[in-house]
Computed example of a mutant assay.
Amino acid sequence: MYFTDRRRLIDMYLTYLGYCNRQDLISQIDIGTATASRDFQTYKAAYPKNLLLNQNKKRYEATPEFTAAYEHDIPSVLTFLTTETWPIEHKNPGFGCQHQFSLPHGMNQNYVSAITRAIANHRAVDVSYCSANSGTTHRRIHPHAIMTNGLYWYTRAYDEDKREFRNFRLSRLLETKDALDAPYIGQESDRSWVHLVTITIAPHPNHQNTKAFLSDLGLEGKPLINIRTSEAMTGFLLSSLRVDCSESQKMDHNQFPFVLLNRHELVDISSMVIAPGFMTQ
């Protein structure tokens, strides 16, 4: 993980978690305890209204007046928070297309960081959310996780209005406000998140050379692959892998190179509604 300005790393932790300590810096950068302490003092000197020391918890915390000092790359931060990896800054050697297109992510740092801070501190959030079906609505949610389907980022949260756990696309947040007085409903109550299922997929039978697609999955001498995932992520995974989930397996095999073999075991999983072909019979 590479930061030319270590104050940016401190600011990232305060923005997206609401707290940071010396060990956070030491674990990410090859520095000593004394250097980490100086970094906090340097940050505090530059942005005195952004942090305070919590002696009981032995960490610095964002103040109520906190304002992010940096504009952080949101997808990179979310990748770090969900996978503990960080895209390394480097000079591009020029192997790619000179005219690559990157789809704008549409996420707002203030709204996304409100969600990640809520997860880190076990809090609910009042949000304005633009749904494709319902338009703009106001609701109180209890986020407990962040996930991606490879294109969009989502938070998994309990929706007080619907009285169930749902997935909310982070780019559709229009406003956020901490709900400090609300008892938190967390991950342990989300059965679909903690319950694991097995997905069995294989190359589409309409392909003439299935060996090529087995190679895509790193399979040698195996006709299929079993993947363990949570119920809540099942539809996302099948969608990102472009798996034909129809009962007839008649979808275009060029667009959907794999088929779902144990569809009958997954029919009662709510996230399957977004699996390719599952609803079109």
Rank of each mutant, 00 (worst) to 15 (best):
F95D: 00
A118V: 02
N262S: 06
G221E: 07
R263K: 15
K250C: 01
S113R: 05
Y129A: 07
T210N: 06
G32R: 00
H90Y: 14
T176R: 00
T136C: 08
M147L: 14
E188Y: 04
D39T: 01
G94S: 11
E220Y: 08
C97A: 03
N56M: 08
Y158W: 13
C97R: 03
L173V: 04
A212M: 12
N108Q: 01
L52F: 11
Y154G: 06
I141A: 02
L151H: 15
W193G: 11
D159I: 01
N167Q: 03
S128P: 00
R156I: 03
R156M: 09
N254A: 04
K58A: 07
P257Q: 02
M233G: 08
S271V: 04
S240V: 12
R191N: 10
K250E: 05
T83A: 10
H122V: 09
I141L: 05
G94Q: 11
L196I: 03
G150H: 15
S192M: 05
V194Q: 14
M272P: 13
R117N: 02
A145L: 05
F95P: 01
L51K: 00
D11V: 15
V194S: 10
D244I: 08
L214N: 08
F236R: 00
L214P: 11
A202E: 11
R242F: 15
Y152D: 12
T116V: 12
R242V: 13
L173W: 05
H204V: 04
Y16I: 11
E160M: 09
N133L: 15
L180C: 14
I31D: 02
W193P: 13
D252I: 13
M251L: 14
I201K: 04
S37H: 07
R163Q: 11
L241Q: 03
P276Q: 10
R139S: 10
R117F: 04
L103A: 06
P64K: 01
T229Q: 02
K91Q: 03
I146C: 07
G221N: 07
A68E: 09
G186D: 02
E265Q: 10
N149D: 15
Y154P: 06
Q249S: 10
W86C: 13
G106A: 12
D161T: 14
L78F: 14
F168E: 05
T200E: 15
H72R: 04
P75R: 01
A45Q: 08
N56D: 07
N262F: 11
L78V: 09
I29K: 02
N110E: 11
L53K: 01
M233N: 15
F66T: 03
H72W: 04
